[in-house]
């Protein structure tokens, strides 16, 4: 942008300048548009499932005994999360551990579940039983620990589930436990 009052004499050379005014106009419009349309906070989602009553017959004991699975249950309130591991063919608790619901405790919880899943990659479900007074924020922090694998832990192999939404279970192994069931909603 320049304002000139020139008195030119014959033979004087013109100063060479780039006119940046159109560029500034364009930038102004672009900045205004981007500022108006920009989304600075983003909303994400956790997917959870509610158990439902089915009329299908339960699998026979022989089938369950042939391929026993580890069943993980997490009992939470506002302060603690208690992990119980049982086998699908035996109702007895084979392993139990308690964690505080704070960053350190939740990291330990993820480390524990990571070690369980490393030993048995078929583990893909955790059933959560929560106290009625549990705050939503605490519950979400537990879900983060269960699902979102920390960057310092290498991804685990993913066993594809044809029934699952591919968006919920990315193949890169960044999701630790893809299936979360809220067990006590119907209890």
């Amino acid at each position: 942008m320049s304002f000139r009052i020139k008195k030119r004499s014959k033979g004087e050379s013109n100063p060479l300048e780039i006119n940046v005014t159109p560029m500034i106009d364009m930038f102004s419009v672009l900045v205004s548009f981007l500022l108006v349309t920009a989304v600075f906070s983003s909303v994400g989602q956790h997917t959870v499932q509610i158990p439902f009553l089915s009329s299908a017959p339960p699998p026979s004991q022989a089938v369950v005994d042939k391929d026993p699975k580890k069943v993980l249950t997490l009992i939470i309130d506002n302060q603690k999360a208690k992990l119980e591991v049982t086998m699908s063919n035996v109702s007895k608790i084979v392993e139990s551990a308690e964690f505080n619901i704070d960053p350190n405790g939740l990291d330990s919880l993820q480390a524990k579940i990571y070690s369980i899943k490393s030993a048995d990659p078929k583990v893909d479900t955790v059933t959560i039983m929560q106290d009625t007074q549990t705050e939503y924020e605490k519950f979400i922090s537990v879900l983060d620990a269960l699902r979102e694998l920390k960057a310092n832990r290498p991804p685990l192999p993913v066993i594809p589930d044809p029934k699952a939404d591919p968006k919920d279970v990315p193949v890169d192994g960044s999701i630790l436990i893809p299936k979360i069931i809220l067990g006590n909603v119907i209890l």
Partner: peptide, 16 residues
Amino acid sequence: SGQQAEFISWKLAVAR
């Protein structure tokens, strides 16, 4: 309430 109306899956909205 959702479960009784056959909605068995919930997407929980959170701030990323």
